[in-house]
Design a protein around this nucleic acid. Structure first.
Ligand code: MN
Ligand code: MN
Ligand code: ZN
Ligand code: ZN
Lengths: 152, 152
DNA sequence: GCGCCAGTTGACAAGCATTTGCAAAATTTT
DNA sequence: AAAATTTTGCAAATGCTTGTCAACTGGCGC
């Protein structure tokens, strides 16, 4: 099931880079060299890099890119809904492209590994709870922190 | 139900201050004046104040307390499991005493109000999901961000 | 293709929340 | 009460993020 969704995720990833450029351009946002580099990095990764890591990867493609631009671009993309920002453990912001279906995260507290999952039942329950409290959910954050089960 | 648990929470709160002091003392931690003030503030509030807010309230009791001490004390209490640290919206850390039953939070994105809730079904589902991914949950974070439903 | 110009960039300063170094002060032990 | 140890307040330092600004450039109009 996780595998299933990973495959879907990868497939969507492959042809979302061009879409983004068009989307952004249509929204009156210039698609500059630094932005293209950053977009490429985001659409070509499976993990959740922070600004510094994106910066490192970007520099290795175009050494003139600045960290400020990475931060600015992340903010812009976040506002456009093109990426999601996470703060696992209360650490620095980590990002991922927003393509594909919504999912939540399980963080391995020993290795730092991030496992993605999705549960329609939990999503549904959240809605019900919010509703019973008189609210409509705009967004939410669910993070499970755990350690790998010792294979008994 | 929410009310129900609020009552329980309040009742537990009332006689948890002394317990904490004893606990800390037994753990070889000195119960100083600043710490007592901070403990009192935490055990006497229903909300989730950040360090600066705790500092303000503390100063109004003992004007010599420093912000550093607030931060140091929060870290100490967190390590001892006496309080929980939250980072709603990615903002500054906010704290609450750890007494009572576990609960999660719904944040009103318009007013900033924080509503506490608890769902055994969600807690259970989380366990199941983690288990199915080969993990045991150590802790988790569930935050719902929503806006008050327009009474249709 | 060339020029224009608002949008964007890199460099670096500034901001914010939080942590840390250190000498003085407070607490517990002897 | 003095010693031993922890804790404090203050200031300086930190880590991440945003702001400032002169220089640059992508995208349209010629
Ligand atoms: Mn993810
Ligand atoms: Mn709470
Ligand atoms: Zn979810
Ligand atoms: Zn929970």
């Amino acid at each position: 099931m996780l595998v299933n969704w990973r495959i879907i995720g990868s497939m969507e990833t492959m042809n979302h880079k061009p879409d983004y450029e068009k989307e952004l351009r249509d929204a009156g946002i210039r698609i500059t060299r630094p932005r293209r580099v950053i977009l490429d990095i985001l659409s070509g990764t499976e993990d959740h890099p922070d600004a510094m890591e994106i910066f490192r990867r970007a520099v290795s493609v175009d050494s003139s890119i600045s960290l400020s631009t990475v931060y600015r671009t992340m903010k812009l993309l976040e506002e456009r809904g093109a990426i999601h920002r996470h703060a696992f453990n209360g650490g620095p912001s980590r990002f991922e492209q927003a393509s594909g279906v919504h999912h939540d995260h399980l963080i391995d507290i020993e290795t730092g590994d991030v496992v993605e999952f999705r549960s329609d039942r939990i999503e549904k329950l959240q809605e019900e709870i919010a509703r019973s409290l008189g609210y409509d959910i705009v967004h939410h954050r669910l993070e499970l922190y755990g350690r790998k089960r010792k294979k008994a």
